[in-house]
Design a binder for these strands. Structure first.
Lengths: 141, 141
DNA sequence: ATGCAAATGATAATCGTTCTTATTTGCATT
DNA sequence: AATGCAAATAAGAACGATTATCATTTGCAT
């Protein structure tokens, strides 16, 4: 159990709801979870947390750098553990599974384009929405 | 005035609110407008349209292919006239202005990456959030 | 001019998220 | 181990964007 230290070093008190949420992200099958996902999974595990707390904790974790927030289509925010690397996302239109990728060529082109237009990149997001080409979509929800 | 034909060919009755909205997109300074933007500008022009109608019309125009919808950060949908071309967006963090660009190298890399992972791209969005590097941001709201 | 389906406007409802506030908890100090 | 207090929580109200409901109005073919 090394989670309390994670929280401590992030300047966050080691409370039960925070440990539960962090644990969920570290042990969940899907890397990408919405606030609703987190809330429901905690309730299903018998944990008794409030939805407002989930939202607060997710935002705090994002600010602390423990989680990264993404805005996929559909409006709702989705979070994932911050592995320290940057990557883009392919969202499967069939099952909603999110696959990650990183392409240095794309990244450097973005820099060139932005610089050429007189902008300094602060952040960017590349989302590809696609169909899995295998006969049966392998990513069960 | 060629707008009524636009609507007709899209299978939409030529009504006053729809003409107003279409006209606004064709004559507005900013290419990218939210439902709220459209509603407020119509009210400001003395036109009396309902907010619900604006939302409905925007969605219909999107489905008819007259407008394209984008989801920038901040949650709300933004629309622009469909010019038929695909392009990506740089959003100025200072003033909210949206600049468009198209980079074939990025596009082709995306195809390669998606194919390599076993996906067929249906749609994608690349949003760069950046600061304008000129001393004074030239894009006044 | 007439009729009727389609479109509108006002408003209620919904969804994701944030705010408010009274209560509870973590944890440092006795 | 008991105490105190700031920080964190839970419940529900509030919020902003969007969608649904429904009675009224409008476009347009007859």
């Amino acid at each position: 159990m090394h989670q309390p230290e994670h929280l401590k070093s992030a300047g966050l008190k080691s409370t039960l709801p925070r440990l539960k949420v962090l644990d969920l992200f570290e042990n969940s099958k899907e890397r990408h979870l919405s606030a609703e996902d987190v809330y429901k999974q905690l309730l299903a595990s018998g944990e008794d947390v409030g939805l407002a707390t989930v939202y607060r904790v997710l935002t705090q974790f994002e600010q602390a750098g423990l989680l990264v927030r993404h805005h996929f289509e559909g409006g709702k925010s989705v979070f994932e553990l911050n592995k320290g690397d940057h990557h883009d996302h392919i969202v499967c239109l069939q099952c909603g599974h999110v696959e990650e990728f990183h392409d240095p060529a794309i990244e450097s082109r973005q820099q060139k384009v932005a610089t050429g237009l007189g902008f300094a990149i602060r952040d960017h997001s590349l989302h590809i929405y696609a169909d899995c080409t295998k006969k049966k979509c392998p990513h069960k929800r």
